[in-house]
Design a binder for these strands. Structure first.
Length: 220
DNA sequence: ATCCCGAGGG
DNA sequence: CCCTCTGGAT
């Protein structure tokens, strides 16, 4: 298992690679950010950014989206995928914002998770980015990167990955670490063809060294 | 554990 | 063709 000290060292090097990492979803209001993050589940932010301008032009506020016809919303977000579930979720979530949260995005992770389509990961992202609530949202990239670096064990659940990261990374760095690790995972430590030969973290990475060995063995 | 689910990359 | 994408609900 990678120590806390080496985990921070790994994070430092990732921040050199991605100095100004931040979310890449487009939005204009807190409400729109919440919706965009809900829509980004199992989808690329590129595909979300392609659909949301049309959606937010028609339904820019919780009031508008809460009253929107299901068919119309489905059609506008169809290209994102998982569109039936997501259309229902964002309409219902908008209705709940009006009915239960005075039309505002709730300020706590616990309250946000009452909204349909909002789980631990989405709530962490939104609370962190909108309200500065210290949190580390573990998505597919953080999960993969953490396991390859052995920051946590291979079998760790999302909650366990989150706990390991929170333990090993200073609290004031949690939110930035999330964005940095996303970009590192998205563009460098990719799921399929990770750029291990060109990785500044290779000496810290158990998986990377294993992958490199296999390549050498294959060429042999 | 399984379903949802289109777009893009390899 | 197959895999992956800032997951969540059942």
């Amino acid at each position: 298992m990678l120590s806390g000290k080496k985990t921070v060292e790994a994070l430092d090097r990732m921040e050199v690679m991605y100095p100004d990492a931040r979310g890449e979803l487009d939005y204009e209001t807190p409400f729109q950010y919440l919706i965009a993050v809900i829509l980004s589940a199992q989808a690329t932010d590129v595909s979300v950014n392609k659909a949301t301008p049309v959606l937010f032009k028609a339904y820019p506020t919780a009031e508008k989206l809460a009253a929107a016809p299901l068919e119309s919303v489905m059609e506008k977000i169809k290209t994102i995928g998982l569109y039936r579930t997501k259309a229902k979720n964002i309409i219902k979530a908008s209705q709940m914002l009006i009915d239960d949260f005075e039309g505002e995005v709730p300020k706590t992770i616990k309250e946000m998770m009452k909204l349909p389509g909002v789980g631990q990961k989405t709530a962490n992202v939104v609370a962190g980015d909108l309200f500065g609530v210290p949190a580390i949202a573990v998505d597919t990239h953080l999960d993969r990167v953490s396991k390859r670096l052995r920051i946590c064990k291979q079998s760790a659940t999302v909650t366990e990955v989150e706990a390991a990261l929170m333990k090993k990374i200073p609290k004031e760095r949690w939110i930035q670490a999330h964005h940095t690790m996303i970009l590192f995972g998205r563009y460098h430590c990719t799921a399929r063809k990770p750029k291990c030969p060109d990785c500044p973290l290779l000496d810290l990475c158990a998986e990377g060294q294993q992958i490199m060995k296999k390549k050498i063995d294959l060429t042999k």
